[in-house]
Measured scan of single mutants.
Amino acid sequence: SHFELRVGTITLHFDNISEELAEELEKLAKNGVHADEIRRWWEEWLK
């Protein structure tokens, strides 16, 4: 499923992401983690 995450002024787009993972990314964003860090985390997870 597709997921969009708003982090400050940036909107990150994720394809084929589980609800659980989407929730984890939302938690990171709410805790003030920068969009670049979240994207890096996601790319690492995909490997």
Rank of each mutant, 00 (worst) to 15 (best):
L28T: 01
E20Y: 08
E43T: 09
E20I: 11
R6S: 15
G32N: 11
L25N: 01
K30G: 08
E37C: 04
D15E: 11
R40E: 10
L12R: 00
L46W: 09
D36W: 07
I17E: 00
I17P: 03
L21S: 07
I10Q: 10
F14K: 00
R6E: 14
E20C: 05
E26T: 15
F14R: 00
N31M: 11
E26C: 04
K47R: 12
R39A: 09
E26Q: 14
H13D: 02
N31I: 10
R6V: 15
R6C: 08
S18G: 07
I10A: 07
S1Q: 13
F3V: 04
L21Y: 03
N16A: 05
I17Y: 03
T9S: 15
E44Q: 07
G8A: 02
I38G: 01
E24P: 01
E43P: 01
G32T: 06
G32D: 05
N31S: 14
R40T: 11
K30A: 14
A29K: 04
L5I: 14
D36M: 06
H13W: 11
L21V: 14
E37Y: 09
F3G: 02
W41R: 14
I38M: 03
I38E: 01
W42L: 10
E19F: 12
H13Y: 14
E44M: 07
T9W: 07
E4L: 03
L46V: 12
V7I: 09
T11C: 04
T9I: 08
E24Y: 13
V7K: 01
G32W: 06
T9P: 10
E44P: 00
G32S: 05
E4N: 02
L21G: 05
E19D: 13
F3N: 01
H2F: 06
T11W: 08
A22Y: 11
E26M: 14
G8P: 01
T11L: 08
N16Y: 09
E20A: 12
E4G: 00
A22V: 14
R6K: 15
A29Y: 03
G32F: 07
W41C: 06
L46A: 09
S1H: 13
N31C: 06
F14Y: 02
F14G: 01
I38R: 00
S1C: 03
L21F: 06
K47H: 11
V7E: 02
F3P: 00
H34I: 08
H13A: 07
T11E: 03
F14W: 04
R39S: 09
H34A: 14
R6G: 07
T11M: 06
T9N: 15
V33W: 15
L12M: 11
L5H: 01
T9Y: 07
R6P: 06
L21R: 03
I38P: 01
A29N: 05
W45L: 08
V33S: 11
E23L: 12
S1M: 15
V7G: 01
E4H: 03
E23D: 11
E37K: 07
L21I: 13
L21T: 10
E23S: 14
H2M: 07
E20R: 08
A22D: 01
N16P: 06
A29S: 06
S18K: 03
L25G: 00
H2L: 03
A22E: 08
A29V: 11
V7T: 02
E43D: 14
E24T: 12
